[in-house]
Design a protein around this nucleic acid. Structure first.
Ligand SMILES: [Mn+2]
Ligand SMILES: [Mn+2]
Ligand SMILES: [Zn+2]
Ligand SMILES: [Zn+2]
Lengths: 138, 138
DNA sequence: AAATTAATGCAATTCCATTGCATTGCTTTA
DNA sequence: TAAAGCAATGCAATGGAATTGCATTAATTT
């Protein structure tokens, strides 16, 4: 476990408990977004509820974001942009691979501007693309 | 109940049973997408499972589309474009109003083209915008 | 050391989609 | 027309996962 992990929590005003360090450490190792169940399996025998609340705290403090990829089980990933407790800034596209069932953040693929109908005001957007990822191609 | 309702089912190769006519009729009256529970309430004492399967049939035949607006309860709306059993063509944006909790199809607001990373292939997209709708504005 | 607050663990709740199966209604065919 | 076969329906059971309540334990503060 890297010492920098603890600092990452402190930077976001999150009390670095053992469980929180374990969860963050696991998230740092991923190259795709993972579910609560994934984390539960990866940290056995950690309690599911505690992980759930840990992720909630992370999200509130701007350390991770929650991805609704349409599968019904939310995915979690570290924020890449400079998010904080007040606001998330990671308005990027998410990609769900129907072959490997993994969900990827595409931080370089921003959600394009839209012209909504008159008097509709947007505060949040979620764009999920489904298809086949590079590793599963052919 | 309009007689044209029955023809709409026949046009999509859906056997026009009493329950299916009721569900379609209710959908035709809406100006926003509605949930299974909404339909259940609107058609009491109709059975929830039957409505569920009716909606599944409608979707498969290209009569309605299912909207995942991120609330956890799928919404249903009539297809506006020419969809059929083989393919849905309604790739428009959906809007969820956080004030009135209604979900709107924005058929004039298409999902913009994206340039995905190399070797990522898209087959489906879902773009949900959250905010305040025109009727709830100020 | 006592009191207060923060985290954790376990069990219970809640909410829905989904499925299995028996029943009913309709259609085809001998 | 009667039997058989298929389609649609209704009810009950199942399953999965988020969410919550509450008691316990750990860390901080006074
Ligand atoms: Mn992301
Ligand atoms: Mn729509
Ligand atoms: Zn893949
Ligand atoms: Zn509204």
């Amino acid at each position: 476990m890297n010492a920098g992990t603890e600092q990452k929590l402190i930077n976001k005003n999150i009390n670095p408990t053992a469980m929180r360090l374990l969860v963050l450490d696991l998230l740092l190792k991923q190259n795709s977004a993972i579910s609560l169940s994934d984390i539960e399996k990866g940290l056995e025998p950690a309690d599911r509820t505690t992980i759930y609340r840990t992720l909630k705290t992370f999200e509130e403090k701007g350390l991770t974001h929650i991805i609704d990829d349409g599968t019904g089980s939310p995915k979690y990933a570290l924020c890449l942009e400079e998010c904080d407790a007040n606001e998330h800034h990671d308005l990027h596209v998410h990609f769900y691979c129907t072959s490997c069932k993994e969900t990827f953040c595409l931080p370089n693929c921003k959600i394009p501007d839209l012209s909504l109908p008159n008097d509709f005001t947007a505060t949040e957007m979620n764009l999920v693309v489904k298809g086949v990822c590079d590793r599963c191609k052919n």
